[in-house]
Design a binder for these strands. Structure first.
Ligand SMILES: [Mn+2]
Ligand SMILES: [Mn+2]
Ligand SMILES: [Zn+2]
Ligand SMILES: [Zn+2]
Lengths: 145, 145
DNA sequence: ATTCTAAATGCAAACTATACGCATTTGCAT
DNA sequence: ATGCAAATGCGTATAGTTTGCATTTAGAAT
């Protein structure tokens, strides 16, 4: 699917097939994807694009603010998703690495209190939550027995 | 320094020289260290230990709960530090790096809600807060003008 | 103290995620 | 249609980490 022809042009980028394909995948997913996830999803649809190119396009998208990149302490791969206007946090399965992007931020109020208490001018935070996903938690509990 | 001879034994580990040396380094540092940091600090003291072994010992320490492993968003290397009994969070000045350890955790309640909403079995989280400390925020504001 | 054995270590090589150089192809302005 | 800068494919490099295997060591048994 070709987007409005000046979507990329507005951002000073050529409107290439590869970029359109990546954007298609990123628009369709609900969970953050690794470069390889994207590469494989395209391969399944018989869209051959070099993994190097996937990395290069993702770098570009991040630089242009279209996509946000995150790294979890649990996985050793970077993950990518469409940049949300609202910042968000991730819930990561420590077994299968499945990652949910969480809506909303639980720290708004806490930051205000901190600001008063510490006199720091607070500019941001990084929060990551770990656990076992529904698919993995059964086996995790079994193993402990 | 040799620790009490059954420190390692209690945890089902052999009391080896390498493990003692790593623990010495980790006990002395105030900042998290990478495997290579540790390797080099030991080399400076003419303690030769293979980098593979450093990684193996760190893995073991993490598995035994002696050490906690983290990855910063800045670097692509894992960092290691002695595991604290009470988990805590840090408020870091992004200019001078001055760090406050914060009392209490603002996420207890949020985690319960998440558990219900997502069906994940939540086991932990990592939170870091950034800002300007009282000493730095004046200059930070000036610069914006 | 000496002997014995499983576990730990050193070393080289493998592995994984990501980046890069360069020849070829593509998008797009002319 | 043409020309050219930018994007891509492909092979290779790099960095952090892990692994297989031969050797050494810790600590239990004698
Ligand atoms: Mn937040
Ligand atoms: Mn907490
Ligand atoms: Zn899972
Ligand atoms: Zn400061």
């Amino acid at each position: 699917m070709q987007r409005s022809e000046n979507f990329f042009a507005h951002l000073g980028m050529k409107n290439t097939q590869g970029r359109n394909h990546l954007l298609d995948v990123l628009e369709k997913t609900e969970i953050p994807l690794t470069a390889e996830d994207i590469y494989l999803k395209l391969k399944e649809k018989s869209i051959e694009i070099n993994l190097s190119t996937v990395y290069r396009i993702l770098d570009l998208f991040v630089a242009k603010g279209i996509v946000s990149k995150s790294t979890s302490s649990i996985s050793n791969k970077s993950q990518f998703e469409l940049a949300k206007k609202e910042h968000s946090h991730h819930l990561v399965c420590i077994q299968c690495k499945k990652t949910l992007t969480l809506a909303g931020c639980p720290l708004k109020c806490y930051e205000k209190k901190l600001k008063n208490k510490t006199q720091y001018d607070i500019t941001g935070h990084k929060l990551e939550i770990f656990g076992y996903c529904p698919d993995c938690k059964f086996f995790a509990n079994k193993q402990e027995e």
